[in-house]
Design a protein around this nucleic acid. Sequence first.
DNA 1: CTTCTCACG
DNA 2: ACGTACGTGAGAAGT
Length: 615
Amino acid sequence: MRTYHHQVAGETVTINIPETGEDLDQFYAWAQEADRRGPIALDTETTGLEVYSSQFRLRTVQFGDRSTAWVIHWERGGEFQQFARAVLTHGQRFLIHHAAYDWSVLDRHAGIPLESLAPRTRDTRIMAALIDPRQPSEGGRGTGLKPLSAHWVDPLAPDTQDGLLAEFHAHGLTKATGWAQIPLHNHLFNLYAGLDVILLARLEPHLRGELDHLGVRARLVDYEHQIARVCAHMQRTGLILDEDYTRELSRRLADEAERFATEAARYGVANVNSTRQIAEALAGMGEHLPERTASGQVKVDKAVLLQLADLDGQWSPRGTRTPNPLANAVLRSKRSGKWQTTYAQTFLDSVDDGGRIHPLISPLAARTGRMSISRPALQTLPGSDQTIRQCLLADEGHVMVSADFTAVEMRVLASLADIKQMKSAIASGNDLHDFTAELVFGPGFTKAHRKLAKAIGFGKVYGGGCATISRQSGAPYAEVERALAAYDRVYPEIRRAASRWQREAFGNGMTVITPVGRRIPLDRSRSYAATNYMCQSTARDLLGQSLLDMEAAGLLPLLRLPIHDEVLVSAPAKEAEDVARAIVECMTTDLYGVRIDASASIGGRSWGSLYGLAA
DNA sequence: CTTCTCACG
DNA sequence: ACGTACGTGAGAAGT
């Protein structure tokens, strides 16, 4: 046995690295004893983050409590794996920081199914996100083990990630190669692997105490663990990539990007991604570029370029001026280039041996609790055009089904702000924006009126003002001003609720507290965001609850992606109608007397086939 | 590392 | 009293 000692919060802790069968017997005896006392802290060290890559290896599995850690060298195989697996299988409860990652590692590489481990896990990252959901870039502490340990456990706790990076460099390795190549017997590697579980074991009681202190309900903590488990299932399942189509598409997009880049080069733009070069070349052609970015540079974004190229939002000729050929070439080269690198090529790079893509689904990514999907970012595939979504397929013999909530954020606003007229419109099944347009503009309202009513609705949900609503909707400022005043007369409850929510947030230490008890920090300078936080966060929780209901209805194996107000599902072709009905049923509910419902579309084999179908 | 741009709900 | 669009992930350029 190799043993290290270290100081944590003024106490000496022990890190054991078993090397023989007898050492492993000691480990097993410790685990049985520790298990009787409470959850065992658990962590893994691996070769990287690409759990589904064929290069990926599990290196160590660490177990610990507040004073002792055991670093089990999984990579050595044989007994090391047997003992680790025995504890993982027989242990009652585990503490993990960011469990979704270790669940997927242990599921895929250690034969410990997600189904077995997830229900026995308490995740300190979820607890931390419920205490403060902000990312470090937004002024939050961050939900990494390092900043949390430094704050709650020991300010002197080593930065194990940074420390290891330095160790990698000392061995001629990098951040990219170090995790895979650092020798298994490396002193610092083992010390830090062990320290992480000790810090984790010490962190959890502090987080539990803080959740208690803040009055965060146990029910919410449990709900988030369920959601995390369902998201981990979706991630494990993944989506099939149409590799032949995607390869061909990637080639085509690369050609197109190249062709238009060559065109742009004729006008002196060597790099179509350089806004500075484009601005200079356009100015040289006599174009007037009055718009500036926040930092004062010439703004040359898509909207500016479309105008110069005489194209509308759908890239069709407008016939209002002579198209600028450089603007046209830059637009097309940039779009093809972005689609090629960000989507098509990323799909090909991230596909596993079984032809599937496993995006990282993060259930508590946003401050409001909204989920995010990354690597690849499947929530942001272009929807204006089906070419990218066509890369992704339903399972063999299946079709894609998607179901969207109907105007969910407006309905949440109607419910939470108790807007009388809006609630009765929803109850009677009227189209909300038609109904509003009639109240605001009278029975003779036009399509433009409906569009403005809808834009004002969004403005209310986002906390926008007259200027932005005017800019977004294209309606003249004065008209928006009048309509906004009429809107406030029709739905006076919105302003009252908005100021109440801001007042309550001030009273709760600049924290918005949603109906489920979620705490959302509110920036003093943007207190109007309180309304958006209430609506966005509650809509997220409606989606989350519907996912749990879908699991209860036996639909978990069919779920593919959550996309804010939409769920993407792969359904056996013959049962698509039944599945669609069942999904919609799970998304149909009542929020304080307001009906929340959804509508489904049944497509073909590819996600892109859903494009353009009526909901 | 920050800024800009662009994809989504 | 007034006015404020919300939330993400990703690639590239430039400092």
